[in-house]
Design a protein around this nucleic acid. Structure first.
Lengths: 196, 196
DNA sequence: GCTCTGACTAAGCGCTTGCTTACTCTGACG
DNA sequence: CGTCAGAGTAAGCAAGCGCTTAGTCAGAGC
């Protein structure tokens, strides 16, 4: 009973999520119709409501999974090393590469937040605070240990996150730089910014 | 005839523009209705069409004026000095302060571009290329003169512009930092990034 | 072979959308 | 005082919106 629906349901459900990501990224949440999403998944308009409660719930699903993945990414970067400089190096490189690689999803989760319901928005903002705290903590520990130097660690943390997030806005596939090239250059910029 | 309409027309027309900026920034272009805009300007829904051709034309007007102002800002910063380091210092400080001060308008012109018509989008992208060229040129001249040092001036220019633009996304009035504080800190970050 | 479950859809409901039409009103001009 | 231009509006149209209803159909279980 529970095993029998595995091959069928997740596939269609996931196809709808992927079509929603593509549409939301291209035209925004309010510029996307439920018919766009269903057509993108090769289904009739009503099929969306077989697998998801509403258009907003789709956005929430995309947003929550994306933020959880980003939180896991920054936590993993910090867990790998003890030295704040090594942690920051790894964190920025992974964060930037991730935003270049998944720029379509990243665009949705960072620029369509205003379309979330009040409760869903609050949940997402809590995840963002936790991501923010990890980055700020790395810089504060680095400054305390004397291996980093910046007059305002909180603002420098904001700038580093901002720099990484905004990659999702301007990055284009196959136009100039690869995700690895951007990640490496940004890693060096970040180390300079933090006074390593 | 031409002088007589001065006190009346521009006022109502401008009020509609300001209401559109507020609505577009809060809910996005597609999330804003023409009734929202008209109500924000204290008028009936039909009044919008007395002063503007369409909702999209309002966005175009806001976008063009905003980009022209930003272009003028970066050109003025470069015109003030001969030294690339002094030019970059002034440019980043003014650019960032401007994006913090006018974050509502800046949010619209940077994050609602996809809602423009094909022709209007092309016009705006040309303005953005010119803004980009000014910043890239400053860094390239600085590197050539040996007063700046970065392995990829074009990517560093992209990062600096990105950092300034993204201020419009996260900056909140009266929450932590003043526009001047952000401008000063970001100026110092920029000089480190560019290897001054 | 019959039943039942669940993925999927054709049709469409009630509402909102961007924009228009046909009108009123005010105030400047001769 | 009559005319006329232009700011503004009440009412509404056609189209599109998110979502629902009532049903079809394929396959698994007995």
């Amino acid at each position: 009973m529970t095993a029998a629906r595995q091959p069928s349901i997740p596939d269609a459900r996931q196809r709808l999520v992927e079509a929603a990501v593509a549409s939301f990224a291209a035209r925004g949440f309010h510029g996307t119709t439920t018919r766009d999403i269903a057509a993108g998944a090769g289904m009739s308009p009503a099929a969306l409501y077989v697998h998801h409660r509403s258009k907003e719930e789709l956005l929430h699903l995309i947003s929550r999974e994306g933020h959880l993945r980003t939180l896991a990414l920054v936590q993993a970067a910090v867990a790998e090393h003890d030295d704040p400089v090594a942690q920051l190096t790894r964190l920025v490189e992974d964060f930037v590469r991730h935003h270049a690689l998944t720029h379509t999803t990243a665009r949705v989760i960072n620029y369509e937040m205003a379309a979330l319901s009040a409760e869903h928005l609050a949940e997402i903002q809590e995840l963002r605070r936790r991501i923010d705290a990890v980055v700020r903590d790395v810089i504060e520990r680095g400054v305390a240990a004397g291996v980093l130097a910046t007059p305002d660690p909180a603002m420098t943390a904001t700038a580093l996150l901002s720099l990484g997030i905004d990659v999702a806005r301007w990055y284009r596939d196959g136009a100039g730089w690869t995700p690895d090239q951007v990640a490496e250059h940004y890693r060096d910029l970040a180390l300079r910014m933090a006074g390593a």
